[in-house]
Design a protein around this nucleic acid. Structure first.
Lengths: 215, 215
DNA sequence: TAGATTGTTAATCGATTAACAATC
DNA sequence: TAGATTGTTAATCGATTAACAATC
């Protein structure tokens, strides 16, 4: 069976998909069989048309009056975001944050399978964290290449983030999830997502100040 | 001296401010005195006009041909995002992620001062993490009220997030930074920022799949 | 059938980018 | 002065919302 080529999809829509999915899984637990955009929209507090357009991106079609068949819809959304077969990933920086991410059971159900951690601390190298080996950072490029790893997660401090990114590039990694509060210099074509905590802090802080001001 | 009332500012602009600030601090270390939008735009890889509009939001004015006076600019941006005087905050859920956040030295320079952690695990209550006390979760509402805490950080699992949010509301907390992968039901007026890891995972996963498809 | 819901096209909205006069 | 840069107004772009015909 030949798959359709993936069309480009608006990032905001992609970002909403996991929210739909969470809601859909909850409905499945309740033995629901059909679900409408109207219902999902109310539940997630968004516009029904937006839901309809988002779901249309997955290629599914609904039936007027009844909505979408839940099992098919779940399959379609999971396939759309590629969570039907999880990707292996490497994580560098086994501090508290790295340890937390290594231990998140939920990632496996979210398309991500972190297979190893890397660090430079001799006290950590050779140990296991959440059942995953912690290896010497210098070994990453070779291993990544041999294991065809495509996703790298950076949880080191700002100072070392670029060095780690370069190791990942050397290993042929194609997508980087960066938790370090520093911009990375990457060649074109490399997928980059920054987890921008300071940006979020700025938004919260500004909104609080604004609400003090009565707006 | 009377401050101007805060005008509403576009969220994307607010979110960019910390990036400018980081760059500005680096320039200050290099003893630079004047900086232009053109320069910042190149450095951060964004449009110069966008930088100009963002900086204008802070109320600062520049000089044609030379740009902005760096010390004034830094002050203006910090004040704009309220980082000139950090807010105290409570964190609930002292697992790996919570421990990581409690230990981030950088938050203090980013307007956030986490003064205590809360948990339900008797093995954690009464201990200290990163020099901050870990207290019983049930004590949060009373303490938050007495200490006038306005920011709450949720780092518990999805199952307990709503319960924790309710405790925070009872304590008069006005802004919630939610790391749990679940939507929260909050009354209007409460500021909410979700750290949406699964959304980011979806974007990475989808982009990888799309790049496999040659687009 | 009647009416709720889908799918699609048009209108709106907000953010980004382009154009350009004012300025030091 | 000449020219780089600011500040501002207009154009573009993309996402969201509104309107509505088609459908079961």
């Amino acid at each position: 069976m030949k798959d359709k080529p993936l069309r480009i999809a608006p990032t905001p829509s992609v970002r909403r998909m996991p929210r739909y999915l969470r809601c859909l899984h909850a409905l499945r637990s309740d033995r629901v069989e059909w679900v409408s955009c109207t219902f999902l929209a109310q539940r997630l507090n968004v516009d029904p048309t937006l839901v309809r357009k988002d779901l249309a991106l997955t290629g599914i079609t609904g039936k007027p009056k009844v909505g979408y068949y839940l099992p098919d819809l779940i399959t379609a959304v999971e396939k759309f975001i590629g969570w039907d077969n999880p990707e292996d990933a490497f994580l560098v920086g086994v501090g508290h944050l790295g340890t937390a991410l290594l231990g998140f059971e939920g990632f496996a159900r979210h398309g991500l399978n972190i297979v190893a951690g890397f660090d430079n601390d001799p006290g950590k190298i050779g140990r296991e964290v959440a059942g995953k080996p912690v290896l010497e950072a210098a070994k990453l490029p070779d291993l990544a290449q041999r294991m065809h790893i495509r996703i790298g997660i950076i949880t080191v401090g700002a100072r070392n983030a670029q060095t780690v990114a370069d190791l990942m590039l050397a290993g042929g990694i194609r997508a980087i999830w960066n938790f370090a509060p520093t911009p990375l210099d990457l060649p074109p074509g490399i997928i980059l997502e920054n987890e921008d905590l300071s940006g979020t802090l700025a938004v919260i802080s500004r909104r609080l100040a604004a609400s003090d001001d009565g707006i």
